[in-house]
C-alpha cells in the first residue's frame, strides 16, 4: 500500500460522498444528448416557433452526416459548456486542501509530492473519462438513431484523441489550483485560457501543432472525414509535453512550499 494508492482512494471516497461520481456523468450525458436531438429537431422547432412566415428552411441543409453531428457534440457542447463544468468541478482540487491546511498536514506524513499530485490527477481524470465517455456514447446512440451511422472505429479513436485534450484541461486546472488561492481566480483563468486555446484552433497550422486544443480539432476532423492528419503525432507529443509541464510546475510549487501563506 503506497501513499499514492491511499490518496487516490481518498479522492474516490470524497467523490462518492459529494455525489460527484453521479452528477458529473449525468451532466455530460445531457450535454451529449443535446447536440443530436437539437440538430434533428431544430427545423421543426423553428417551424413551430417562427410560424413559417418568411422563413424558408432549405431541407438539404439539415441533411447532416452522423459523423458531423457527433463532431459538433465535441466541438460545441463538450468544448464549451464541458470546459466550464470540468474547470468548475476541478478548481478546488488542490486549492481546497491548501485553504483547509490539509495539504501541509498530509505532507507532514511520509508522502511524496508526486504521489499527492498523481493521486489527484489520475482520480479526477478517470472520473472525467467516465463522464465524457458516457456523454459521448449517448450522443453516439442518438446520432446513429436520428442520423447516419458512424463507424465504431472512428467513434472510438476520436474519443481517445479527445481525451488527451481533456487530460490537458485537468492538469492545467490542477496547476492553476496549486498556484492561486481564490476559487474565482482559478475558475476565471482556467476557463478563459482553455476556451481561448480552443478558439484559436484552425487559425494557423503551427499554432495548431503546439496547441493542446488541436487534439479536439483532430478528433473532430476524424469524425468529419474519417481520416486523421499526419501532424497528429507531433501534436500528441507536444500535448503530452504540456501536461508534463503543468505537472512539473505544480510539483515545484508544492515542494518549494510556496503554498504556505504565513
Amino acid at each position: 500500500m503506497n501513499s499514492f494508492y491511499i490518496l487516490m482512494n481518498k479522492e474516490y471516497f470524497q467523490m462518492i460522498r459529494d455525489f460527484k461520481i453521479i452528477w458529473l456523468p449525468i451532466v455530460f450525458i445531457f450535454l451529449g444528448m443535446t447536440q443530436p436531438v437539437l440538430t434533428y429537431y431544430l427545423p421543426t422547432i423553428l417551424g413551430a416557433l417562427g410560424g413559417g412566415q418568411g422563413i424558408t428552411i432549405d431541407p438539404t441543409m439539415v441533411q447532416q452526416e452522423g459523423g458531423q453531428v457527433l463532431a459538433t457534440t465535441l466541438g460545441s457542447q463538450f468544448d464549451q459548456l464541458g470546459i466550464l463544468i470540468i474547470v468548475i468541478s476541478m478548481m478546488g482540487m488542490i486549492q481546497a486542501d491548501k485553504a483547509s491546511g490539509m495539504l501541509a498536514f498530509i505532507l507532514t506524513r511520509p508522502v511524496t509530492v508526486w504521489s499527492y499530485i498523481a493521486g489527484k490527477v489520475i482520480s479526477n481524470f478517470l472520473l472525467v473519462i467516465v463522464s465524457v465517455t458516457s456523454g459521448y456514447f449517448v450522443s453516439y446512440l442518438y446520432v446513429n438513431y436520428l442520423f447516419t451511422d458512424v463507424p465504431i472505429s472512428h467513434m472510438l479513436s476520436a474519443l481517445l484523441i479527445y481525451l488527451i485534450w481533456v487530460l490537458f484541461m485537468i492538469s492545467f486546472t490542477l496547476m492553476i489550483s496549486t498556484i492561486f488561492n481564490g476559487q474565482g481566480v482559478i475558475a476565471l483563468i482556467g476557463i478563459v485560457f482553455l476556451i481561448i486555446c480552443r478558439m484559436i484552433t484552425g487559425i494557423h497550422p503551427i499554432i495548431d501543432l503546439i496547441n493542446p486544443a488541436g487534439m479536439s480539432q483532430h478528433a473532430m476532423s476524424l469524425l468529419f472525414t474519417g481520416s486523421v492528419d499526419s501532424s497528429i503525432y507531433v501534436s500528441l507529443f507536444i500535448t503530452f509535453l504540456w501536461v508534463l509541464f503543468t505537472l512539473l510546475v505544480s510539483h515545484l510549487w508544492i515542494s518549494q512550499k510556496k503554498f504556505q501563506q504565513d
Binding site: 501513499s3 491511499i6 481518498k10 471516497f13 470524497q14 459529494d18 490539509m102 498536514f105 506524513r109 511520509p110
Partner: peptide, 21 residues
Amino acid sequence: PNFFQWMTARENLLFMGQLSG
C-alpha cells in the same frame, strides 16, 4: 488541527495512519 470535515473520526485516523505507513 484540520481534518477532512466530511470524514468520520475513524476514517480520518485510518487515512492519516495509512499515510504514515
